[in-house]
Simulated scan of single mutants.
Amino acid sequence: MTIPVITFFNNKGGVGKTSLVYHLAYILAEMRVRVVAIDLDPQANLTAAFLSEEELESLWETPEPVSTIFRAIAPLSAIGDLREPDLRRISQDLYFLPGDVSLSGFEETLSEVWPASMGDSNHYRPFRILSSFWQIAQMAGKKVEADLILVDVGPNLGAINRSVLIASSHVIIPLGADLFSLQGLKNLGPTLRTWRTAWKKRIDNWPNPEFDLPKGEMQPVGYICQQHSVRLNRPVKAYDKWINRIPGVYREAILQQETVDLRPEEDPLCLATIKHYRSLVPMAQEYRKPIFFLTPADGAIGSHANAVKEAYLDFQVLAKKIQAAVGFSNVLK
């Protein structure tokens, strides 16, 4: 039995993918869902969120063999095979597989073997490389008996993200309220369908694989609107134009359905509209914790304390919606 893999993906940057993965990993673990978070963005922003600068220096400069995702797959670039990754235990039910800036060098390898996987022979190595992210993710999840795997990726449509999406059972799309997010959303639908179809052709080309392969489902779960300034709990009027176009564009581009006249808060496919928590964000970064774990000792007093409580409830609701949509094994309380 495979463990669900949810990737937070948008080829437009600055929409909060990393922050979402970080906070959802913590809130799910708080709700006793065992989570493995994986950083598959070569910029390693999620790794910088989870680990201190001293830990990062130790991680990347010491010869520990499989301390990052890249070191687990690196032997494939030569004549070796995948290695079981070492996970960082962040809390009782939260584990983390760090990223690595060296991962960017694996892009060329992935690009080279993509056409080779459609050849008439020697399928083992191309498929081992193309499915390496899924293999490592499942290896990591089974190692700690995880209920769910969350993945952060960079904002592009390159070979690394293609293999990450092939490894993903589900996809959640974070969006900002702007023209660029909508244009990115229009690109995502055709890209996901192309990758899904191309992977199926490759699987069909190797009818008797020598090891398990991902199905490349990339099932859309929904979208998340976020990073809006708020006034009286409603988005500022300047954003309304873009926010209100998202439900229709999502259906057309991602689901190939007819457009609808809905606001995101009325749309069942909108998993959440995450508020802009303003000064809580730098405060949480300073104390290296999610915003909903800030305390009065950290400076979260008065209106900040109320915002911390709201953030906890907001992410809890979001976690439950994702559980209902994906159906991973642990039932949230």
Rank of each mutant, 00 (worst) to 15 (best):
A137H: 12
N156E: 09
A137Q: 13
Y22F: 15
N11E: 14
K17N: 08
K201Y: 10
L94K: 00
S102G: 15
L157K: 10
C270N: 09
Q43R: 13
D240S: 03
R128V: 01
T109E: 13
S132P: 01
L59V: 06
V153D: 01
K321P: 03
I254Y: 05
L294Q: 01
E30H: 06
G154L: 06
S181G: 12
R288I: 00
L269M: 07
L157W: 09
R245S: 09
S121Y: 08
L28N: 05
A198M: 09
Y250S: 04
P4S: 08
E55H: 02
E108V: 13
Y250F: 12
L185I: 10
A137L: 09
L318I: 11
N122R: 13
G184C: 10
F50G: 00
D39A: 03
E266F: 03
M139C: 14
I274Y: 09
G216Y: 01
E108P: 01
I136D: 01
R71T: 10
V230M: 14
I291H: 08
V331H: 02
F106K: 07
Q183W: 11
V144R: 00
L318N: 03
V317S: 13
I3H: 04
L271T: 01
A300C: 02
I243P: 00
N156V: 03
F133M: 05
N208Y: 11
P155D: 07
D93H: 08
N330G: 05
R32K: 14
K143N: 06
P98H: 01
L271V: 03
R32H: 12
D86E: 08
L150Q: 00
D261Y: 13
L182R: 12
I301P: 02
L255I: 11
E54Q: 09
